[in-house]
Amino acid sequence: MSEIGPVFERCREEKRAAFIPYLTGGDPDLETSGRLLEALAAGGADLIEIGVPFSDPIADGPVNQRAAARALAAGTSLSAVLDLVARYRDKLGVPMVLFTYFNPILAAGVERFAERAEASGVDGVLCVDLPPEEAASELIPALRARDIDSVFLLAPTSDRRRIQAVARASTGFVYYVSRTGVTGAREELPKPLLKEAKRMRRRLSQPLAVGFGISTPEQVRSVARVADGVVVGSALVRIVEEHASEPGLAERLEAQVRELADALR
């Protein structure tokens, strides 16, 4: 198994949820991106989600869309993100999950991708437009053979049958999308979220992480009551966007991550 399971175990022992920050790999460029991964780890990330930039990110809101565009303009590819993981995964000692669309993996070749992911030290792969049904024939076996976790998503629209399918296919954790919609910070958490997350969690043996639209320490704390992990993405990506050219970017990001991670401690 990957290192993801042990992270959730450790957090459970500490009686807290895991903090999982997201950044788009290669945003604003590959070198800066590496320094930002260090900042995430230093700020208290238990697990890091790295986005693979894609030209047509249908599940992402404007902030992450722009991040993908910046990363692609800076020459980032799936291969470059894997290099980034290879350089920082062991150095930082924080497990890393790729958050990606399926087409870059398909273009690389599923087996070849899995080999490279293993060599780079990737702990888990979450493919946002690849439901378990479509992953069953190729991607899941390729990852499983290499002890890389395959993480699938659940959403408020997921019915009982889908919860079962995702529960069967997911390893490491299950990612619950807090709302019907795309990624991006929102002022308020959706009202039914806490109840819904509880409903999902009861049916899963894996840890449940909740993401999409979570941006403040208050929101992080409140989601942590029903989740094993809390993902914050766009709120951090926005910091990268707004301060990309400033020398204090990494410090600013680290401070923000610390504030969010501390909300769980």
Binding site: I58, A59, V128, P131, E134, L154, A155, T157, R162, V177
Partner: peptide
């Protein structure tokens, strides 16, 4: 063929939110 496929083409490659709908 599995549902929704023409040979090895087609399928349902969408975010989970859309799968049940």
């Amino acid at each position: 063929q599995p549902i929704g496929y023409f040979g090895s083409y087609g399928g349902r490659f969408v975010p989970e939110t859309l799968m049940a709908p």
